[in-house]
Design a protein around this nucleic acid. Sequence first.
DNA 1: AACAAGTGCAACCGCCTTGGG
DNA 2: TCCCAAGGCGGTTGCACTTGT
Length: 266
Amino acid sequence: MVRAPFYDKNGLKKGAWSVEEDNKLRAYIQRFGHWNWRELPKFAGLSRCGKSCRLRWMNYLRPGVKRGNYTEEEECMIIKLHEELGNKWSMIAASLTGRTDNDIKNHWHAHLKKCTKNNPTISKMKTLSNEAYQHDADIARKTEIDNFVSSSPSYQVMESSQLSLETSSNEFPSLSFDNAPLFGINWIAEDNLTTLETLQQSFSDFWTEPFIMDNTYDQNKYPVSLAKGGFCTSQPCYNEGKDSIFMAMQEVKNYQGINEDQYLLN
DNA sequence: AACAAGTGCAACCGCCTTGGG
DNA sequence: TCCCAAGGCGGTTGCACTTGT
């Protein structure tokens, strides 16, 4: 159903993603985050461009991505929001938990566009959508309050020693190896990850390290992109300057080496 | 059974925005 | 203020699958 894989003139692979590529990308991002999309494929051992990796992750591999049938409520929301926002698919997607902008865009063009043109019951749908919208707005407000509370410094200090894996996986879809099964992802079984298990052990002390707040990076003039992307290391690099960043990079490279070796065996 | 037309959706392309130097 | 790199977004395309004739 997708483009057949091929290589462009720069040697970059295009077209459909293989299971193996998915596993590599998922494994890398869940461990190190997407600290730099352009560099990521190199470190993850993929012959893809960064944009392609980003797209694959955002639209397909990212935890929590909902696929398949749309509920009536979701459709009403889309219609309502499209009426208000136009083709701002990313904004519409932000209001529909688990749906991607691409998915919504496709669904709109495939189903709802016709529906809004032809369906005489559209006014009824609009009424329904207002209710759905109100319901969603309530949830959004609650989430906003929750986020505000959890992002306050005092809260983070209190929670820092027991950083929730669930939270981290949502906001930085990057960090945990252990949480993969939570998303119904069975990639560990699909892959020969004995070496990664060993790696996991070597990384396990990461979770015992103090929680790193984004503004810690800002204050210390460390690359914000690393912090925002959830770049992690088993070394407590966040207050030790360039050497630590270098060590972190080395760790990424080590991982890459293991990852590549692993696939050489296959 | 064979072919054409329609559909669904993953992926690509190119432009725009943003942030850092 | 300008330039550049990177990320993000919306439009479009390609192709497998389904449905109709």
